[in-house]
Amino acid sequence: MFDFDATLPLMAVQFILLMVVLNAILFKPLTKVIEDRSTLISNSQTGAKEGLEQVNAITQQYEKALIDSRRQYQSIIAKAQAEAQKTASEKIAAAQAEAVAARETATRELAAQKISAMAELEKQVDSLSQEIVNKLLVGV
């Protein structure tokens, strides 16, 4: 069972040969491809992380801009509403004043016309009564 002979050194030589061959055809190419792959993966991971950061920054910027513009348009709407309100109330007030003025003028005119019509009527009543009197007196 323990018979040592030339098998021993020859096995050692064979093993070293096997190691050289496997190093050339297995270990080197596989190590290269594994390391290349891990470099690639870590590179693309870094790239993806950077991209994600950029996306986050841009999203934040957009959100900020969105909030700003919302605030802006709200203030614009509020201003416009206030202005419109003001204009409307001004116009209403003016219209009301005009209406009141027109009514007053009309009332005044009406009163003047009434007076002149009354005067006319009185005059006519006077002349008519004069005529009646005259006709009556003529008959007498």
Binding site: F2, F4, D5, T7, L8, P9, M11, A12, F15
Partner: peptide, 11 residues
């Protein structure tokens, strides 16, 4: 075979 294992361990 002891020759193989001894060769390997000597290496």
């Amino acid at each position: 075979d002891i020759n193989t294992t001894v060769a390997l361990s000597l290496l």
